[in-house]
Amino acid sequence: MTDIRSYEDNRDAGFGDYVQLLKPRVMSLVVFTALVGLLVAPVSLHPVEAFTAVLFIALGGGASGALNMWWDADIDAIMRRTKSRPIPSGRIEAGEALAVGLALSGISVVMLALATNVLAGALLAFTIFFYVVIYSVWLKRSTPQNIVIGGAAGAFPPMIGWVAATGSVSLEAFLMFMLIFMWTPPHFWALALFMKSDYGDAKVPMLTETHGRRVTRAHVWWYTVALVPFSLALGFTPIGGNVYLAASVVLNLGFLRGAWTIWRRDETVAEADGYKVEKSVFRFSLLYLFLHFTALLADAALRAWGGF
């Protein structure tokens, strides 16, 4: 046993490291929005089918997270926010992450298709492809519009949940998709405004680096304005209701107010107060999305009990 000391340098991965590879925080958002998409649909699934559907939509999202970490390991090692991830910290090898990502992608797509329908499985496969190939491999390092188009990947889960239950894409599913799709740019640009040095060091072309902070502030405002109609329109579909409409009006006013403040604010003022407004708008944007989907769920529950 003379080589026993060689283990000291070998940072063997524990189970938790593989869980980290699946980006559990992103998965929690996927689980929530997919579950809402599935529950508000007019066709109900058996609870076991519904559980299986949400589980494998989430696993598909996790698999794309692992593939993203495999591809982005070099830039993850540079950014403060990401350098403790399993690959840059040396706990999991890049090739292993690729294998885990590909295997879980296959399992989740096949299981979702078997548990619900082929269209849902195909949509999940497309989502994984979109996030990994279109966003991570192609757009993320080549254009400041990466966030805008990449946002589509995060917008698919409620649509997949809906399709898992009904078997087809409809206006409601499209509007749930658009709500997250249009929400993503102002959400991430608010983050980029106060995480300023990180993306630049990693040479990721964020709007703040390529077009400057003034332009980014304007973009936060205009994309928030573009988001509002989609948010309100969802309230006038069969899955909307009084709770959703009330929540949507209040949340949109709050988001517009925050985005307006970001736009009108000077960089020196922002720097002086430690990007207080940008940070609060970022936090509010998370609440904005969460409460929109919670309101959809509340209206569905009220309809089920015969109210409203």
Binding site: L45, A115, T116, N117, V118, L119, A165, T166, G167, S168
Partner: peptide, 10 residues
């Protein structure tokens, strides 16, 4: 059948 609802049998 071995999958639920494929939209053809609503």
């Amino acid at each position: 059948r071995m999958h639920a609802n494929d939209g053809k049998s609503m």
